[in-house]
Structure formats: structure tokens, C-alpha cells
């Protein structure tokens, strides 16, 4: 960890301005990812802008009938919110599938969206990694890549977004609200929030320098049955090999997004048209053009079978779920 200076601004715009004027500054909220990365000097901010004091921790209804989730709402609180559990159960389930109780108590909604990949080569500063050190190369391409991306990757990076919450946010068509240093606000659809690596894998999202997330807004409840199915090597406290977030309507239509397979939550809207035909038809479309590594081809089979299980769960009468 490099030494850093630290401030606690009074307003979101001040916070954004503080980061905008210093290229070596970063926001810190729960710090559950950033502090670890700073200890390993994967992240080396020289200035931290602590946003925890900003009052961005409310969950409020929107005029459109949705929910506005403050950027600082802790994962535990969001997962436990009665409205979320009733109307957006896929989000609650995704949150509870992530990390551990202690981490969820600390981790925030905005911070969760910004967590960085768990690619092992990203985590070893002696290894080439274009995400950590642009232009140095990608050690993972022909290395240990069992957990890495099967689709949407590039020759520069095959990292995955490691989170669960964002996969649910993606299937719920959330919107990320931001403010910049000048006080200007912006709404970014979640579909446009996380990037594919392309030739700039160092950039995970479309946030601009200094732009601060203030909230994540959910549109009005989608109805249907909600399922989040996370597949992992152990029963808890592990990243997804594959996860599926699904919202399925009584007529068999619905939405589905996959985690653990790409640099961002993976949702292909055109593939959702195949949902009534079953998992195989959906994944055939959703994963068309997939390029697994020598290590992770199993994820394609797993995605199909996990979606099958999720659809089965959504259709099974008497199972826990959300009624329209």
C-alpha cells in the first residue's frame, strides 16, 4: 500500500470534483475490494475520497413505480429490504449468493458494481496483465483460465466480472445514476455500464473520470418468477463459475442474464425470445461466437444446464417465487 491522503467531502458533487481534479484519486466506500488491491499495489491511489458520509443510503420508491437504491446502501440491507424481496427477488438472491455475511455488511451497492476481476494474473503484480498494466500482455490467455471468460473477450483480456449483484441488476434493466464534478447528472443503463475488454481492458466501465455513482434505479417490478442460481466449487464464499439470473413469466417468456462468463454480466436480449423453447435454444443464441480457452469450455455446457435448472425452478409450482 502506498501512502495516501484522505478526505471526507460534504456533498456528492464535491466528492466527484475531488476525484476529477486528481488523476491519482479514488472513491472509497465499503473498501472490501479496494483495500485488498491497495495492499498488493494493484491499485495505487495517492488520495482517497471517502464517500461513506454522504447520505446516499436510502431505498426509495420512484414516481415510475420502481425503486431508487442509494449508492451506499449496504448489500445486507438491500438484500433484506422487504420491497426488494417481494418485487425484485432475483436481486436479493444474487446478493445473498455473494461473498460472506461480514463482507455484505460492509460492501455497498455502487462499490459492488465496481469490483474488479478475480483473474489470478491480475492479482500477481509480477505477471503480465493488460488490465493492471496496459500493454504488458495477458498471462491468462494460455495460462490458468478455468474461471475466466468464454465470450466477449479479446486477445488483450479474458477477465470476468466477478460479481453476482450486477447480473441481477442487468436482468432487471437497472439504471446507474451519477454526478460529476460540475454537478451534472447522468443516467447510464446497466447494459451500457460495464464494458467488454476490447483493446482497453484496463477500463471496466463507462464511468468518466471523477464521475460518482449516486444511486441505482430499478424500473417498476417485472413480475414473474425470479431465480438466481450460482454454481461454484464450494457451497459458499466462492466466485461463480457460472450464474444465471432469470425472471420468467407464466407464459414462459422472460429475461435471463449470465454471470461468470464474460467481462460484464452477459445478457443477449434476442436470445430471450427462445426462452419458451427451453435452455438449449437460449444458450445457443446467447453464446453464439463463444471462444472458450483450453481450460474453460465446460462453462458452455454448464451455462446451458444451469439455465435449464433455473427455468425448471421458475416453472415448478409451489416453489418460492414472485407472483405477478
Amino acid at each position: 500500500m502506498k501512502s495516501f491522503t484522505y478526505e471526507r467531502p460534504a456533498t456528492p458533487a464535491e466528492a466527484a470534483a475531488a476525484v476529477a481534479r486528481n488523476p491519482e484519486a479514488k472513491f472509497i466506500a465499503g473498501g472490501t475490494n479496494l483495500l485488498d488491491l491497495m495492499k498488493l499495489q494493484i491499485e495505487t491511489p495517492t488520495h482517497l475520497v471517502d464517500v461513506n458520509g454522504l447520505t446516499l443510503d436510502a431505498i426509495e420508491p420512484t414516481p415510475e413505480g420502481g425503486l431508487r437504491i442509494g449508492a451506499l446502501v449496504r448489500n445486507t440491507d438491500l438484500a433484506a429490504d422487504a420491497r426488494v424481496r417481494r418485487d425484485y427477488a432475483v436481486l436479493s438472491r444474487a446478493l445473498l449468493a455473494g461473498a460472506s455475511g461480514q463482507l455484505r455488511n460492509k460492501a455497498t451497492t455502487a462499490g459492488n458494481l465496481l469490483q474488479r476481476t478475480r483473474c489470478p494474473y491480475f492479482y500477481d503484480t509480477a505477471q503480465a496483465c493488460n488490465k493492471r498494466q496496459p500493454g504488458s500482455g495477458c498471462s491468462a490467455l494460455d495460462g490458468i483460465s478455468r474461471g475466466l471468460a468464454v465470450i466477449g473477450a479479446s486477445e488483450h483480456c479474458i477477465a470476468t466480472h466477478p460479481g453476482d449483484m450486477a447480473v441481477a441488476m442487468r436482468v432487471l434493466d437497472a439504471t446507474v445514476e451519477t454526478v460529476d464534478g460540475g454537478g451534472a447528472t447522468r443516467s447510464i443503463p446497466i447494459a451500457e455500464f460495464h464494458r467488454l475488454p476490447g483493446d482497453k481492458p484496463e477500463t471496466d466501465t463507462t464511468l468518466r473520470a471523477g464521475e460518482l455513482i449516486t444511486a441505482v434505479t430499478l424500473p417498476k417490478p417485472p413480475g414473474g418468477r425470479h431465480v438466481y442460481r450460482k454454481v461454484r466449487d464450494r457451497a459458499s464464499y466462492a466466485y461463480a463459475l457460472v450464474s444465471v439470473a432469470a425472471v420468467v413469466q407464466p407464459d414462459g417468456t422472460g429475461r435471463v442474464a449470465f454471470g461468470g462468463v464474460a467481462h460484464r454480466p452477459w445478457r443477449v436480449e434476442e436470445a430471450e425470445a427462445e426462452l419458451p423453447k427451453g435452455a438449449k435454444a437460449v444458450t445457443a443464441r446467447a453464446f453464439a461466437g463463444a471462444r472458450p480457452t483450453h481450460d474453460n469450455g465446460f462453462k458452455l455446457t454448464l451455462a446451458e444446464r444451469t439455465l435449464g435448472a433455473a427455468l425448471h425452478e421458475a416453472q415448478a409450482p409451489g416453489r418460492e417465487g414472485v407472483r405477478p
Binding site: P120, S139, G143, I144, R146, R234, S236, Y237, Y239
Partner: peptide, 24 residues
């Protein structure tokens, strides 16, 4: 996990090297 090109154990922390947790 052995990186047979670079000669080291890649998953060198407790997030990468998984041991059973209580839930297992």
C-alpha cells in the same frame, strides 16, 4: 494450480485456493 509456463502456483491466496467452508 500450476502455470507450467512460468512455473508457479497461480492461485496463491485464500480466494483462489479453496478449502471447505462451514457450508460444505
Amino acid at each position: 494450480a500450476v502455470d507450467t509456463r512460468r512455473g508457479f502456483f497461480v492461485n496463491h491466496d485464500l480466494a483462489g485456493y479453496e478449502v471447505p467452508v462451514h457450508a460444505d
